[in-house]
Design a protein around this nucleic acid. Structure first.
Lengths: 198, 198
DNA sequence: CCCGTTGTTGACCGAGCGGTCAAGTGCTCC
DNA sequence: GGAGCACTTGACCGCTCGGTCAACAACGGG
């Protein structure tokens, strides 16, 4: 759906995006009706279909916009840091911080991953994120800062740690982001540090 | 729903559980109608409601049964291994192997995690799994095989790695379980092995 | 002040859903 | 062989959903 929007129109669209994201996060995508979304704004149903051609398109827009925002935050955090390992660390910290500030998107992304309709968008988002991490990992390998291993597997493992610790520690248990980020970075850089003896 | 079942009845119930799990995994929970499930068996709708009181109850049963099965597999794999670190390793390998054989449950569990209705069941399942890992971690700390750290955070990090590598490598890219399991164990035990110099 | 465009209304529609039920079938045990 | 319980049928119900639309309001440039 492409339409000429005035400032008023753009504001409405953003309102719809925001309210929908909140409702999707709270109750889930399917259980949230379009009529719930417009009701939460106190407007008629037609408003929704003025800005979006379908409920599906709305979710796709939410996914794209949020990923863009997360990525901007990561890049801002990394800046021009020259050390690749340090860049990975800064990326991990930025991700945790972003999710702590945008909790609602976590549940939405997780649902979208379970629905074939949205999987392509999500896959694309993920590939971009992985590519960033892989780039840093490869550089770190070239500089012999870390051992030579399949960078794609490593990148996935790192994202798995960040994902899980965000979910369990930051979102569910409300632990301070800093502390959780420290733990995530520690685990990724050093694992369980099993002593060679074992 | 508790009912007296003959052998025939138990078989039907299992058929329903199986077909439903497959459909939920392929299309998702909400988009799969009860009428789809019974149609895939070529029976009338009443059959479903003879064995389950609602679609919701069905999913809860699927979640409980699958978690029980995974756990049995883990315990069988661990056996009476005395070394706690080795027990963690065996648990990781068993999890990956189980999911490789029961791919359909991964998508179902992921969806269930996004729906408040099913979150309690899942939370319970997860707590049980974490408790197992934490037990081994604590023992390993007592024996000074690994450094003293918050065992709950570590357990979550490990589960995150297993989760992510199962999803990306085993399920999506069909890599051999053994190889992925090696990578998961390596990463968990040693992380990125950043050289102390950095 | 008028007119075209942007924005809004809410009754309405067809489709599909989860769930019910009266009626029937097949098994099993006495 | 029949009484009774396990199991099956599928039309049916009430409801909610995503989406449409004709009519109308607000805004803004000329």
């Amino acid at each position: 759906m492409r339409r000429k929007l005035t400032q008023r129109g753009r504001d409405r669209r953003d309102q719809l995006l925001d309210h929908a994201a909140r409702l999707f996060a709270e109750r889930g995508y399917h259980p949230t009706a379009v009529s719930d979304i417009v009701a939460s704004l106190g407007v008629g149903k037609g408003v929704f279909y003025w800005y979006f051609s379908s409920k599906e398109e709305l979710l796709v827009e939410i996914l794209k916009a949020s990923h863009l925002d997360l990525r901007r935050r990561q890049q801002a955090a990394i800046g021009d840091e020259p050390d690749p390992v340090r860049r990975i660390e800064l990326g991990i910290r930025a991700s945790l911080a972003w999710f702590a500030q945008h909790r609602e998107y976590f549940a939405i992304i997780q649902f979208a991953a379970t629905d074939e309709t949205f999987a392509p968008v999500l896959r694309r988002n993920r590939e971009i994120g992985l590519a960033d991490t892989i780039k840093h990992l490869k550089e770190a390998m070239v500089e012999h800062q870390i051992a030579d291993q399949d960078p794609e597997v490593l990148a996935n493992a790192i994202h798995g740690v960040v994902d899980q610790l965000t979910r369990r520690c930051v979102l569910e248990r409300d632990e301070p982001v800093e502390r959780v980020a420290d733990a995530a970075v520690d685990f990724c850089l050093g694992g369980l540090r099993v002593s060679p003896a074992s």
